[in-house]
Simulated assay, not measured.
Amino acid sequence: MSELPLRTALVTGANSGLGLASALELARGGLRVVGTVRSADKARKVEAAAADAGVPVETRILDVTDAAGCKDVVEDVRPDVLVNNAGGTCYAPVADVMEEEARHHVETAVFAPIRLARLAIPHMQDRGWGRIVQVSSVAGKVTYPLMGWYQAGKHAMEALSDALRLEVAGSGIHVAVVAPGGFRSGITEEMADVAHRYRGSKYATAFRRLDLGFTLVEPFWTDVQRVAEVVAHAATAEQPHGRYVVGRDAHASLLVSRFVENFRVGVELRDKAVRRLIGLP
């Protein structure tokens, strides 16, 4: 009986948080894992974490907005599994984000993961097997104020991923979206910084209340390891689902959103309630 081939997973944004947890979880599952990071210092952190976990994880230096760099890494690694995790948040009123910053965010959140998928697909097609895992968020389906550009990236990435899943299914390639709610990964510290930055502005109350809200609900968020386990399952299951929603808060948000959209005056009532709750001007 022949042995199964060793699968190779490429995980972007692997230096911390969910990216690092996913890389380690995939390595524990017996895959060869290559994590991308943006600096040698971050690569050393990944190597140290892998050593502590007792698993091997290779690293490659990559800024996912660098098209040529993406091509070089994919040609070098030739992944069976691609986990598009790299990205960032964008907490700001839509009109406060200048076009250059918005373009960079969309490049990171939308063009980069689809570019990497496009580059990896031919290698997967040659083998007749592949897994593309797109790390999204409940914000890929639900919209809140003061996170518009972040949500725009996730909405667009999910729409493209849904189309891609249908287009490549006949090649033995599965595309899965993992959409967690809140999980513990330093996000509260980032929101605190944003609230401080907007102090004295007309949005000061809204950001202060969001910061307080994040702090209050963080104990109820999903542990990052749980999300990483879902990512690993989506990357290795024989028949993965097209979408995984992770966390009670994510399921609740989607349920409320669907109810509001099906209720004739639901959107107007929701808007008034949200504005009053967080103190928008």
Rank of each mutant, 00 (worst) to 15 (best):
E218L: 10
V227Q: 15
M157L: 15
E261F: 00
F220S: 10
A86S: 11
L210M: 15
A250D: 12
V178W: 07
W221Y: 05
E107K: 00
A176W: 00
S22C: 08
A9K: 15
Y198D: 00
T65D: 03
G128P: 01
V37H: 03
A192V: 05
P145I: 05
H155E: 09
P93K: 03
A192I: 05
V256D: 01
R118Q: 12
L24D: 00
D66F: 10
Q125K: 12
F214L: 09
S253M: 15
R197A: 15
G128R: 09
A234L: 08
H123M: 04
G130P: 09
L4A: 14
T8W: 04
L216K: 13
V194N: 10
S185V: 01
N84E: 00
E25S: 09
A49N: 04
R78G: 05
P93Y: 03
L254Y: 10
P122V: 06
A109Y: 02
D41I: 09
R184L: 04
F220Q: 12
A68R: 15
P56Y: 06
R184V: 07
E190M: 12
V106M: 14
T65V: 13
S253T: 14
R131S: 13
G17K: 01
A228V: 09
Y244R: 00
V94C: 12
V97T: 03
R127G: 04
A252M: 08
A120N: 11
A50S: 08
A53K: 08
G54K: 06
K272H: 07
K154G: 13
R199W: 03
V267T: 13
E167M: 07
V175G: 07
R258V: 00
Y150W: 06
H155V: 08
A21F: 06
Q239Y: 12
V231R: 10
G88F: 01
R165C: 04
D63E: 12
K42I: 05
A176Q: 11
K71S: 13
W221M: 04
A68Y: 02
S185R: 03
A250V: 06
L166W: 02
R226K: 15
V55K: 15
T188K: 08
V37Y: 12
D193W: 02
R199C: 04
V231C: 05
A86Q: 04
E99D: 14
V64F: 03
R127S: 08
A68K: 12
I187Q: 13
V260I: 13
A250E: 01
D193Y: 01
I121R: 06
V142K: 01
E101F: 03
A14H: 07
R248G: 15
R28F: 01
A250S: 11
V57H: 11
K71I: 01
V81P: 00
V73R: 14
R32N: 08
G130Y: 01
A176P: 07
Q225C: 08
V194F: 02
G200R: 04
G69Q: 10
N85Y: 04
V57L: 03
Y203Q: 06
P180H: 02
E107T: 11
N15K: 05
F263C: 13
N262Y: 11
A109M: 15
